[in-house]
Design a protein around this nucleic acid. Structure first.
Lengths: 231, 231
DNA sequence: TAGGTCCTTGACGCGGCCCTGAGGACTGTT
DNA sequence: AACAGTCCTCAGGGCCGCGTCAAGGACCTA
């Protein structure tokens, strides 16, 4: 097994001290760290960089932390670990019920936070990895873990967007994925009806992967609803 | 949608007081509670009753708590919430790294534990719930999650409108669905009396799915009222 | 700054799906 | 037996959604 690429952590905290401390510690442990200093930036950052886990301080200047959780849970399952100075029981309950995965009160031990981070990443990784990492069709092979596609032995290069789209379809193989879901997961939660994007990119994938792009056998259209990947 | 069956919680604690307190509180919240008083019993209980979540005290008389976690993680992904009197950072790290999902130190607030329990069940339920969406009849099979219909092994293609209609009827299987409700949910709230639409589309569904379309056995008409799906 | 890749956006033809209307069957009522 | 109401069936026309091609522009790299 090759060394897995480092997990990306989005750290959301308006206190530069804490953000810096987290950045240093997490980076030292091999994580790829991105920081945001308010809720708006956090929501945007999640849509753009797709972190593997979010560490979220509740005391943000612009948006209430619980609303940030809600905004994320509307379209993504990314694990959220809440940091908060308030150890109040009702705060914890609200945050957890809004969709947070864990809740750590400040001051916190870095060891503990790291352990909880590992637990969160491990959990979400298990389900993601469960779907076999390699999917084969008659004409091409997809390695989800390595992010590689081969066709007749030769490697086929997919762009970032093409890959994201392909990955979602493959992870849901056999299932119909709605246009809205695809748009949300590839382009972000603000894209609802730009189905033209899908047409363009599905066409590109078909051109690269299907034996007869005009008669797709694996990337199937369900008119009015979405797309479906079949082996 | 019918009421989901209650989640089963395995409470593992050798202190009868705490075990009792948990049983009372969890039962009051609608959980199905099973208790075990030592590690051996816990391991056996998980294998036998397959709980949806385990609440595990670390101070067990026979087996070290971390080993219990390890014993479970060897074969199951059931969420484990650790309870412990020791708030020591290294204990937390060991338990979490052994595979625990969460760690709560005694004394704990019952509200918080319940919220963490909900979070754990929610997480694991997302993936498990989707699998249970297949409805079978004598002649055809409907997979609600994948949005696909099979008849005698072969795939039957439904259009968007056909599928919407079918889905509503299937989700209300056995129950009568009124024409108005069907029109509202498929064509929108402004459609009240266009029952001709329904006739056309129900006929199409019957033609595609019923063995004898003129003598429907599953898509039944209730004259003057609506339609009903029967397995 | 130049070159390349990639994302976005527009225009256009085509096929399939949704709607619609007409005719007929069935049932219950007067 | 005539009639009204509801339902089933079939077929055609309009239109929306899909696929395709191509060009503009953003971004990165050298």
């Amino acid at each position: 097994m090759p060394d897995p690429e480092p997990s990306t952590v989005l750290v959301v905290d308006d206190d530069p001290q804490i953000a810096r401390a987290l950045r240093i510690n997490l980076s030292a442990r091999g994580y790829h760290v991105v920081t945001a200093h308010d809720g708006t930036a956090a929501l945007k950052a999640v849509a753009e960089i797709r972190p593997d886990v979010v560490v979220l301080d509740l005391g943000l200047p612009d948006i209430d932390g619980v609303d940030v959780i809600g905004g994320l849970r509307g379209w993504t399952q990314v694990p959220i670990i809440v940091l908060s100075a308030r150890g109040d029981s009702t705060d914890k309950v609200h945050a957890l019920d809004a969709g947070a995965d864990d809740y750590v009160t400040k001051p916190f031990g870095m060891d503990e936070l790291l352990a909880r981070l590992r637990a969160a990443v491990r959990r979400s990784g298990v389900s993601a990895a469960e779907a076999e990492a390699v999917v084969e069709t008659r004409t091409f092979t997809i390695d989800l873990a390595a992010k590689r596609v081969r066709r007749d032995g030769a490697e086929v290069h997919l762009t970032k967007t093409e890959w994201r789209l392909m990955e979602i379809l493959v992870r849901n193989q056999g299932r119909l994925v709605t246009q809205k879901q695809l748009l949300h997961e590839v382009w972000g939660p603000t894209y609802d009806s730009e189905s033209h994007y899908l047409r363009v990119y599905v066409a590109q994938l078909r051109r690269k992967l299907e034996p007869e792009p005009s008669r797709p056998r694996h990337l199937l259209t369900e008119p009015g609803m979405g797309y479906r990947f079949e082996c």
